[in-house]
Design a protein around this nucleic acid. Structure first.
Length: 216
DNA sequence: CACCAGGCAAGTA
DNA sequence: TACTTGCATGGT
């Protein structure tokens, strides 16, 4: 079986088992981007609380959040953890949005994907996964998002070495798959769902994985 | 109680 | 370059 069919079969196995995902959760591209920063090393349920706080306070839009004092912002995003750090990162991102995008993420659509990616990576607090999540899920640009689950699932099924880094993992998908936003979106969403429900850090908690018989 | 969750940057050697 | 550490809340 060649590598492309391997990946597509893997995708279909997850899709058959779990159904389509309708991702990323968020009402607007800006909310998606904020969620991408808040979810760094945090449980999504806690990010939902933080976003709920921002909505309740009616501050979840670029201009209002830019003007909000950082201490007040930190207070609102507290449930997401690392709250002072994340308030600072959101402020860096908001300054970028104001200065480079006229407060509108759609401005990134004017650039090539990798150029937009480099711009985001220049923001302090935005690393590869956060940048790619914003590009794919908020801007609908074709980059494959890698996360902790991606490497864990692939290495546990013997497809890659455990120490494979972000760029290599991303290339593993992007060198093979067609450049398709919908495919990249659903593929990553399914990997996260499989990761959450079946592929915990402890290898023992890996029963009934949709990919369990995938490579037998 | 210990461990974990959709990372990232800064410091050390 | 390759490791290590700080950042923090809330669920299991």
């Amino acid at each position: 079986m060649n590598r492309q069919n391997l990946l597509l079969n893997m995708f279909n196995a997850m899709l058959d088992a779990l159904g389509p995902s309708r991702w990323w959760p968020g009402d607007t591209p800006f909310e998606v981007a904020v969620g991408a920063i808040l979810t760094q090393n945090a449980a999504w349920i806690n990010v939902e609380r933080a976003i709920g706080n921002l909505k309740s306070a009616s501050v979840l839009d670029p201009e209002t959040l830019y003007a909000l004092p950082e201490e007040r912002l930190a207070e609102l995003v507290r449930p997401a953890g690392y709250f002072r750090l994340k308030a600072s990162r959101l402020k860096h991102f908001l300054a970028f949005l104001k200065n480079e995008c006229a407060f509108n993420l759609n401005a990134l659509a004017a650039f090539e994907v990798m150029q937009a990616r480099d711009m985001l990576l220049g923001v302090k607090g935005i690393g590869p996964e956060t940048a790619d999540s914003i590009l794919l899920y908020a801007c609908e640009m074709p980059v494959f998002v890698v996360d902790a689950y991606t490497g864990r699932i692939l290495s546990r099924h013997g497809l890659i070495p455990e120490e494979t880094d972000y760029a290599e993992l991303q290339a593993f998908f992007m060198d093979i798959l067609p450049e398709d936003v919908k495919l990249f979106n659903e593929f990553h969403a399914l990997l996260v769902r499989v990761g959450k429900d079946f592929c915990k850090r402890k290898a023992g908690l890996c029963r009934d994985c949709p990919l369990g018989s995938f490579l037998e």
